[in-house]
Amino acid sequence: MSNNTKALDIRQVPQGRLAMWTLIAGELIIFGGLIAVYLLNRIRYPEWGAEAVHTSTMFGAINTCVLLLSSFTIVLAHNEANKNNIKRAQLYMFLTIVGGLAFLCIKSIEYSREISEGLTFTSPAMVAKGEGVKSLFWSFYYIMTGLHALHVIAGMTTIFIIMMQIGKGKNIHRVELAGMYWHMVDLVWIFLFPLLYIAK
């Protein structure tokens, strides 16, 4: 779009960054709505504390570290991209994707442990015992972490596509945008972790 710059005199924030901030604001409101609904229910049902005991704080803590580390590597990638070190930027982006994969692997180990205990999206055994309120905690657990996992996958896909593009010397500025999105994914997890794993 460089041929349009002659029409502009007010481009203070680059176009892509502005759009990414808008997108992030929209995404945070989706998660914000979900978290607010969860909190209202959590206050209403103190017995959910006993359900949260079944989530593994250890796995959650490891995953928090993994995500934070991957946020760090994407910052390094941005830094290298700014210096035009494409190969190194690609390496750090690759490490970020590995971080995302590690997060998803750990998450699926957790999910399988919980599912084998009969704690699922609908937890039919609990509902059959008349403990529907408790099963609702697990519905919230899966919808919140599941929606977050979808965003992890979306972020990884974006980073992968941009990693390929900068290899061809295109769209180097997009490394920063992918990084912003990845930080958002990280930030949401920082809220989910205490709500679902620590508060028991």
Binding site: L28, I29, I30, G32, G33, V37, F121, G132, S135, S139
Partner: peptide, 29 residues
């Protein structure tokens, strides 16, 4: 700034319909 919570709500309603969660089902809290 207003549609976000409804997007989350639509996701919950869809799950109530297709997997049988109870987000909006009073009998399950």
């Amino acid at each position: 700034f207003s549609c976000g919570p409804l997007v989350a709500g639509a996701f919950m309603l869809l799950l109530d319909n297709i997997v049988g969660t109870g987000f909006f089902d009073a009998s399950r809290g």
